[in-house]
Design a protein around this nucleic acid. Structure first.
Length: 767
DNA sequence: CAGTGAGCGAGCTTCCGCTTGACTT
């Protein structure tokens, strides 16, 4: 028998709290929710006022049994799940499953894990708030209804195994709409003029000022004319302004901002960030990593002040508590911060160290004073034109938090460079060293990264810290979007330079459209998105979540009955389901591109059973249509007739080589040459299957065969001894076998090999 | 490893939010 049992959500939290509470208390964890809606028949009785059918999932049975045993052994039970909608529901499910009296169960909450917070929580128990529980039930049931009623419509009307949901479908929509903005974007160019001026100073030294013309020019001719004018101009300083300013540190990390910064600064994916953070949390090195709060505990505030004063001086310290701005934030936890601020580094693997240091810097910087900067702008006048040249520079007067940490932005290498403007006076003459007009192209809006998508979802109030990473995985697993790199394309830019009265025009190539780790919508994502917008526009509306959240809040306040809210929602919603099912058509995203230039047959593209496909002709007039899969990076939406026809040029014969035909084609793994029933991959970025020559093909075949020869140490016919990355190994019938340690490959016979293989097969079966 | 482009049709797929392991290579 134990006096007091405290139940929390996380086992790591249980461990810490037990230390604070002493031996009269036992602290155990529920590992999150212990019950959920039944999987079968939606788990909801819609006819009977949305009565939920809750069940304990298989993987939770063990935990629940342990909880039951512990509860039976305790005199007092304290439920300390998180103080938010989900936490309150967990508390209620616990009372139901453990058969606790609601009136006598002590519900306690704390937002930070400190001795003070916990003891004061124990002193102020309350009862379970059924209004809050009901708002969670409404949330849960609405999500189940949306997901489990729309998804089957997709199976029927689009493709099996697809999914839709309040959160994931909006995430996909954002990516699809962004891609369409990019597709319809027309890049325009203009000429930007930058002059490098020399200014002579008293001591005989000269300084350099780089300034940009106040006007951009539409084309090269206009720019050239302006430069000609510049050649004969006189320049002088027309105005100087010096403005003091301040910069403030960013608030401590939440899940979303941690994911963004870990991507920008460390290149982590969203899932990777969460996995590393989980490790740090379990090791007691950081506070909880799934949070939407920027709050720091009093203890943490005091400690960071100490660390800053000791390390930098009192001038650097400014204690701040940040208000959480995010829509719908529930703030059940603290911000993500180091558990012990004394440690600016930790032991651990490189990724753990890097992420920890990032968290430490962000936390400490948030408690430092503003940085003081001085921004200087000067304008340079030309005697024969209204156009002016402007330069701006920034000097940091007091670095403060910038010494520790600066938040990154999503814009990649913006060409605004900050530099120090030399001291000048109004009216001073300037002389040009060079005046350069360079062609600049406007860029389309950027594609989303995993992290910038999370940022956007958070802004819309869609999804929660615990679901950002899983949502990003889901939309990739369904094939709606793909995260990938793109090499970009070359583009010529022209540059006109004026130097010492002479003009020169050069052309430079730059790379445009290069992408790293960006989210690209796939055909099936675009088709599903359009289908959802056509049939369920309310659900995929960007404001849908915000609207229902308002109603959940009303339920939590006791102003709205949760079943009434569900009735109001479900009536019209279910009607849209029926309407969608009544429609006859099957969504394939089909487009007719035109007619075949020789035969006149129609050429179309659509989503087929095995993916996007191009088709020539149709089966109506008895002739057999021809098919070809679209290649990677092609979209049904943008593919042209020419591109589609190109697909049918492969596979093609390259001719004969030593009595056998060489066939070039594109397969699952890219372009290949098939020769003597073996496959030889073309080199990425070097060879093109449409234009590759016979000689080059022979070279590729010879190269690969030679490399393979090098791999073979011994050839026993059916068994090969090969040289691999990790040393020698055996190969038989496409199966590989490891050699026992210390095997002498020189003396190895075919019989030895057979023994090794048989032993290996036996141990595989037994395990 | 490198394809497929039907009409016999079982039984399956799916949501969002709380939490961690249990698995294999």
């Amino acid at each position: 028998m134990i006096e007091n049992l405290v139940i929390v959500e996380s086992p790591a939290k249980a461990k810490t709290i037990e230390k604070f509470l002493g031996k009269d208390f036992r602290v155990i964890s529920s590992f999150g929710h212990i019950r959920d809606l039944a999987k079968k028949n939606q788990g909801i009785n819609v006819e009977k006022d949305f009565t939920p059918d809750y069940e304990i999932p298989k993987e939770k049975v063990k935990v629940v049994n342990e909880l039951k045993k512990a509860a039976a052994d305790a005199t007092n039970i304290w439920i300390a799940s998180d103080e938010d909608r989900e936490g309150e529901a967990i508390a209620w499910h616990l009372t139901e499953v453990l058969k606790l009296e609601v009136s006598s169960t002590r519900r306690i909450v704390f937002h930070e894990i400190t001795k003070d917070a916990i003891t004061s929580a124990i002193e102020n128990p309350r009862q379970i708030d059924m209004n809050l529980v009901n708002s969670q039930q409404a949330r849960r049931i609405l999500d189940r209804l949306v997901g489990f009623e729309i998804s089957p419509v997709l199976w029927k009307k689009v493709q099996p195994s697809l999914s839709a949901g309040r959160v994931q479908s909006v995430a996909v929509r954002l990516i699809v709409e962004r891609e369409r903005e990019i597709i319809s974007f027309k890049s325009e160019s203009s000429f930007r003029v930058i002059a490098v001026f020399r200014i002579d100073q008293k001591d005989g030294e000269s300084a350099i000022i780089k300034a940009e013309a106040s006007k951009r020019f539409n084309d090269g001719n206009e720019a050239q004319k302006f430069l000609e004018l510049c050649a004969g101009s006189e320049y002088k300083v027309a105005g100087i302004t010096v403005k003091p300013g301040t910069r403030s540190p960013a608030p401590p990390f939440t899940t979303s901002t941690l994911q963004q910064e870990a991507y920008r600064k460390l290149g982590f994916s969203v899932a990777q960030t969460m996995a590393v953070a989980q490790k740090l949390y379990e090791a007691g090195k950081i506070t909880y990593m799934r949070t939407d709060s920027t709050n720091l505990s009093k203890l943490a505030l005091a400690k960071s002040r100490e660390v800053i004063v000791d390390g930098f001086g009192i001038k650097y310290s400014k204690t701040r508590q940040f208000k959480t701005k995010t829509k719908g934030a529930q703030e059940a936890h603290e911000a993500i911060r180091p558990a012990y601020l004394d440690n600016s580094t930790i032991t651990g693997n490189p990724n753990e160290k890097k992420l920890y240091e990032l968290i430490w810097k962000r936390t400490v910087a948030s408690q430092m004073s503003d940085a003081e900067v001085e921004k200087t702008t000067i304008s340079v006048e030309i005697n024969n034109s209204p156009v002016t040249f402007n330069a701006s520079g920034e000097v940091i007067k007091f670095d403060c938090f910038l010494r520790v940490y600066t938040e990154s932005t999503d814009q990649e290498n913006s060409d605004e460079e900050r530099y120090v403007i030399p001291p000048v006076k109004k009216g001073m003459p300037l002389y040009y060293n060079t005046v350069t007009a360079s062609q600049k192209f406007t860029s389309p809006p950027p594609r989303y990264t995993e992290a910038s998508l999370v940022k956007k979802l958070e802004e819309l109030g869609i999804g929660r810290p615990s679901t950002y990473a899983p949502t990003i995985s889901t939309i990739q697993n369904r094939g709606y979007v793909l995260r990938e790199d793109r090499p970009g394309e070359k583009r010529a830019v022209s540059i006109i330079t004026l130097e010492k009265g002479k003009f020169s025009t050069t052309s430079k190539t730059e790379i445009t459209g290069k992408e790293k780790s960006k989210l690209f919508p796939q055909d099936i994502g675009m088709i599903v998105n359009d289908f959802l917008i056509d049939n369920f526009s309310d659900i995929v509306d960007y404001n849908f979540t915000a609207d229902v959240e308002e109603q959940f809040d009303e339920i939590a306040l006791g102003n709205l009955k949760w079943t009434k809210m569900l009735h109001t929602f479900y009536g019209p919603f279910h009607k849209t389901i029926e309407n969608a099912l009544e429609k006859k058509d099957h969504k394939t995203g089909a487009r007719v591109l035109g007619n075949h230039p020789e035969t006149g047959e129609p050429v179309s593209v659509r989503m087929g059973r095995f993916g996007p496909v191009a088709q020539i002709g149709n089966s109506e007039n008895g002739s057999k249509p021809r098919f070809a899969s679209l290649s990677k990076n092609m979209l049904i939406e943008t593919v042209t007739l020419e591109e589609a026809l190109d697909l049918f040029r492969l596979p093609r014969s390259l001719g004969m080589h030593e009595g056998e035909e060489m066939i070039v084609g594109i397969g699952k793994f890219g372009p290949y040459i098939r020769y003597k029933s073996k496959f030889f991959s073309l080199k990425k970025g070097v060879d093109d299957p449409y234009t590759i020559t016979m000689d080059r093909a022979i070279e590729i075949i010879r190269e690969k065969n030679e490399n393979e020869q090098k791999k073979i140490i011994k050839d026993f016919g059916d068994i090969l001894l090969l040289n691999g990355k990790y040393g020698p190994y055996l190969s038989r019938e496409k199966q590989n076998y490891r050699l026992p340690k210390g095997t002498d490959t020189e003396k190895l016979t075919r019989e030895d090999c057979i023994i090794i293989i048989e032993k290996s097969n036996k141990s595989k079966k037994s395990s």
